[in-house]
Amino acid sequence: MSADSPREIGERIAASRHARRLTQTQLASASSVSYAMIRAIERGARRPSDDVLEAIASALAVDATQLRSGYTGTERRVHQALPELSAVIAGYDIPQGPPTRTPDELAAAVSAAVTLRLGAQYGRIATEIPSILADAIRYAHTAPAAEQRTAARMLASAARTADAVAFKHGARDLSARLIDLMRWAADRSADPLAQAVTAYVRTEVFFSARAHAVGLSALEQALDTAPAPTGRAEAAARGALHMRAAVIASRAGDIAAADTHLTHARDMATKVTREGTYLGTAFGPDSVRAHEVAVAVSLGSEHVDRALGIAHEWKPPASMAAERRSGVYIELAVAQDWAGQHRNALESLRVARAAAPQHTREHPWARDVATALRRYHRSDAEDVTRLCEWFGIV
């Protein structure tokens, strides 16, 4: 049972409803929950059941973990979806008939799923992505010649979104298979930008295996073949590769390479001029700053002042993609924990949780910091205990 009171849950639902400019009547209609129930929940007179909470969260386009702390339905949905995803991609290279969606419907579904990925809405992705991915595979095999490249790019994007669910929830083998599918689709597209994005995502495999030096070599090879930065999309693709190369170089302990790639990433950020989402990847000046924090933390505790200095002069804007914003605050919490700034670390974890609860709950560094904070405080310290309960580590 969540430690949240019915009033706290109701206040979060009301705040989310107001943010979306919905009336209680409209929320009731969109969620198929009675108006009387919505009123009772928002004023704290009723605690919503799991089914009601899910329905309200879906209508508000948020994950249920943002409305009730400790909610585990997301994890259940994700783990229930993993076998289905595995089955969907088992024969991705074998034609299986036409898709159930039209090309326009499929494009809209893939685009919506990308938005969910950037918002770290893994539970909603898990519910929707198996059928989207199945249709994307079918479309890649059946599309007319004039649509083949578009179909392949669409499949690569769908596979990337599915991988976000698998990777974040520890299904490493499935993640690697989804990345293989993404590479297959990118090669079919013959699109250098799609191939650059695939190289960016493939780095997850090297992070998981702690094969940092090999991963750095793979990214540098991808940079050698990436398109020249003649436009925003091309500059963003190169910039994203440089950002990720900087982080994996720092994990390899290669400070010089990390700083060189950060310099190149900053240069690409000036070419795109503004933060944005390019080919499904957030890139721009703020994303580069976020990766500067990641590099400093990845280099280890002796570089804590570097991480804290960046955070002192720059804060992730609210417009930054939720998953990336959450990641910055998780990394900052690590640095603050190293520096003995335990209260600040606790606040950073709270901000990370507010930005992207699913991402924060599943992030091993966030869990490690929460565990450490519990050691520093008495076991009955309410704030720390409630956070650890939310993580499921007490």
Rank of each mutant, 00 (worst) to 15 (best):
P144A: 08
A113T: 13
T142S: 10
A162R: 04
I132M: 10
A162S: 10
A107C: 10
E292D: 05
E362F: 02
M243W: 01
D50F: 02
S175Q: 09
G392N: 09
I129W: 09
I248N: 13
W184A: 11
A235Y: 00
S86T: 15
R7L: 14
P144F: 06
P192F: 06
A258R: 05
E75N: 07
P6Y: 03
D191K: 08
T25C: 06
L279I: 06
G215Q: 12
I125V: 15
T65A: 15
W338M: 07
T142E: 10
A345H: 04
S34P: 07
R361C: 04
L193P: 02
G10W: 01
R274F: 02
R343N: 14
E313C: 07
R46Y: 12
T230H: 15
D63N: 11
E362T: 07
T74G: 12
S301E: 15
L82K: 08
A166P: 01
Q66G: 14
T260F: 11
I13W: 03
D337G: 09
H212Q: 04
L174W: 05
P6T: 06
M182Y: 05
R386C: 06
E347Y: 10
T230K: 14
P48G: 05
M154T: 15
E147P: 01
A162N: 05
E347V: 12
Y329Q: 07
A199Q: 14
P103I: 07
V369W: 00
D180E: 15
I125W: 07
A14R: 11
Q195S: 14
H242C: 11
G239L: 02
Y92N: 01
D191E: 10
A145V: 13
L27S: 06
G97H: 10
D104Y: 04
D380A: 00
P229D: 09
M37H: 15
D305P: 09
A30S: 12
A45Q: 10
W338Q: 05
F207T: 09
H303Q: 15
E234I: 04
R266Q: 01
M243G: 02
T127K: 05
D267E: 12
